[in-house]
Design a protein around this nucleic acid. Structure first.
Lengths: 169, 169
DNA sequence: GCAATATACTAGGACATCCAAGGGTTTGGA
DNA sequence: TCCAAACCCTTGGATGTCCTAGTATATTGC
């Protein structure tokens, strides 16, 4: 946080790994560490853009997901699966979004265990505005070249598939 | 969390973006979302490997950093800068590592504002063992091909530089 | 049909991250 | 010299993530 470092700390770490005889895994270590740090930077940008809307990334993701659902509503367990987060994280996000009147809980018509989450009118409006802001301020200014974007999607997609996120494609 | 999805949720999101007329930023959105999810998967793997050592990734990073320091000690603000996290996060990590007797705080010899963090003998031992475990269980099995690793390092390195992480190189 | 198993959500706890503020130490300009 | 500004660390608060249990509802199998 703060001023730029004179040198890339991850490149330094990679050199340290090599110097200690772990040259065979130094590069993957550096790549993985770079992914962790890049995520941190991107998350900070996203949170900055969402803050004026009273949203965090976790809450925005849920809103965006709901806004694309055919019926406009989803069971919590479905949201948990699609967002790939723990069910309790969804409960947490829904609690806060409900308090902000952006979503509403309703009982599932046939399964008493299930709770449906539904966008309110205001939730839909906020979702649309927040998406527009993210598109113009973050996704539209990622700094990645088109080729790099394609490469990232392909490589990370294969990684996620191998990790068990999904099966097809 | 749990069973694989039948389809890639990020690819679905990308299609939704395109369907709503945001085709110009759909690909970067997908790439960024993939980075977020990949980080989540990698972090989970890392935490699993570190758990037997009583470490989290944040604490491990600090131990590893100290183990490469010439003097074996670093000021907290230096650690904060190199790890690229908020100073309070370092305070938090040091508190817990100190409680586990893996590091020790000591006053800076000439600057009364600064606190030095130093590895204990046990801290050094644990750091070495944890590094070996991560090397064999995570970095050595990343699933990324050599070319992909090089590409990630290069592309994410440029991104981090542009984001202001560091200057040279 | 009823008990055993499985599923869905929530409550409580451990950790991590950041921000805002506060108290102590140094530095630097008037 | 001396006080304001800058710097360093810690505390307290808000969020998010996960895990472990616990409660309620469904489904399955005998």
């Amino acid at each position: 946080m703060g001023t730029p470092l004179p040198r890339d700390p991850i490149a330094d770490a990679q050199r340290n790994w090599e110097r200690h005889g772990w040259g065979d895994v130094a590069a993957p270590m550096a790549a993985i560490t770079a992914i962790m740090r890049t995520q941190q930077i991107l998350l900070a940008r996203i949170e900055t853009v969402l803050k004026p809307f009273g949203l965090t990334f976790a809450r925005y993701e849920l809103l965006a997901l709901l806004s694309f659902a055919r019926s406009g509503a989803l069971p919590m367990n479905k949201a948990s699966a699609l967002l790939q987060v723990h069910p309790t994280s969804v409960t947490n996000a829904v609690d806060r979004l409900e308090k902000a009147a952006l979503v509403a809980r309703s009982p599932h018509p046939t399964d008493g265990r299930t709770t449906l989450i539904e966008l309110t009118a205001e939730g839909r409006t906020i979702a649309k505005k927040a998406t527009a802001a993210l598109n113009s301020e973050v996704f539209g200014k990622s700094g990645f070249g088109d080729d790099d974007v394609d490469h990232l999607i392909r490589v990370l997609g294969a990684f996620r598939r191998d990790a068990g996120d999904f099966t097809e494609e």
